[in-house]
């Protein structure tokens, strides 16, 4: 498989060097792998730190900036970052108001962030944590490591980030983050496998003419394989899976997310189908975001995330944000 890179071992470092040059408003520490907004720590403001394996861009580094994250820690491709990165990030963004760690629910991320939280607290940083586990494709039972964290992460980072920017304290920012995490659900489908630089080819086998329903953001298999379906049929399955679990009694934010290898033309068409099903099911959509935000390298496919919002959360959604990946109102 052809990839636009020098050597696989340097993919993440090369990307960070390029990101630094493209975004002077960020401080990108290529050696220590920490991306921090240049004005951090912002006096009196709670710091937001997230991180995870690379390969999901713009998540998380592309969401660093005013109104969203204060710092992000990129790991190797699909591999959680290490505690040293998170401790360094927390120290860089702590104004004394404390730091919220936003963690996607994967065994590696949870273990490394847990270790980092302990170390940062030893250094005198007040830490709160929120775990994002929004993927309805896998059941949450004692037989799994819980639900996976996927597209809901964008909503948590945006809404908690806006609250922090407004001056909410650590307890309040953490409470909002947890409310958003609890109110978000995602479901993804893959039309093709993703290829990691280390492997140099597809990480799983998805034959032509088939799709994987309930795919994870690392290409982990989900619920079932089926013969290829139309955009409308996929929207029916995805939205029904979400509503079976979320049962919203108010308006929702909708994220129709591309996984990296699907053109925006197809994503907008898919969004039309998603909104059709939501309307049929009587769900009001307050705001919609369409694009590649939580990707899986070059995987073709899409995911739908819904987040039930009240007026307060909707106001936080509309609040200004200025990051490489998400920008409005400022």
């Amino acid at each position: 498989m052809k990839m636009l890179m020098n050597v696989p071992e340097r993919v993440v470092s090369d990307a960070l060097r390029g990101m630094a040059l493209a975004h002077p408003e960020l401080v990108v520490d290529v050696d220590n792998r920490v991306i921090v907004r240049r004005d951090a720590p912002v006096a009196g403001k709670v710091g937001l730190v997230s991180g995870g394996g690379s390969g999901h861009e713009p998540l998380h580094g592309g969401f660093v900036g005013h109104g969203m994250l204060d710092a992000a820690c990129p790991g190797e491709v699909f591999t959680s970052p290490v505690p040293d990165q998170m401790v360094r990030a927390a120290a860089a963004v702590d104004s004394g108001a404390g730091v919220l760690l936003i963690v996607k629910n994967y065994t590696g991320d949870v273990l490394n962030f847990d270790m980092a939280a302990e170390l940062a607290e030893d250094e005198g940083v007040r830490i709160a944590k929120v775990l994002v586990q929004d993927d309805v494709a896998v059941t949450d039972s004692t037989y799994t490591a819980g639900r996976r964290g996927t597209g809901g992460t964008l909503f948590v980072e945006k809404l908690a980030g806006a609250a922090a920017e407004e001056g909410a304290d650590l307890d309040r920012v953490a409470a909002i983050a947890r409310q958003v995490a609890d109110s978000s659900r995602s479901f993804g489908v893959a039309l093709s496998a993703c290829s990691t630089p280390a492997k140099g080819g597809p990480t799983f086998d998805l034959p032509d003419g088939e799709l994987e329903l309930g795919i994870g953001i690392h290409g982990e298999p989900g619920r079932e394989r089926r013969a290829m379906m139309t955009s409308g049929e996929i929207a029916d399955v995805a939205v029904d899976a979400l509503l079976e679990d979320l049962r919203p009694d108010g308006p929702v934010l909708a994220l129709v997310n591309g996984t990296g290898g699907t053109p925006l033309l197809e994503l907008y068409g898919f969004n039309a189908e998603v909104q059709r099903v939501l309307t049929e099911r009587g769900v009001a959509v307050a705001r919609t975001l369409v694009g590649n935000y939580v990707t899986s390298l070059d995987m073709a496919g899409a995911s739908v995330t819904l987040c039930q919002v009240d007026e307060d959360l909707l106001r936080l959604w509309d609040a200004p944000v200025s990051t490489p990946g998400l920008r409005w109102g400022r």
Partner: peptide, 12 residues
């Protein structure tokens, strides 16, 4: 290993 690997295998 804890500070270089990441993922689950680093801490474990």
């Amino acid at each position: 290993l804890v500070s270089k690997v990441g993922g689950a295998s680093g801490p474990l």
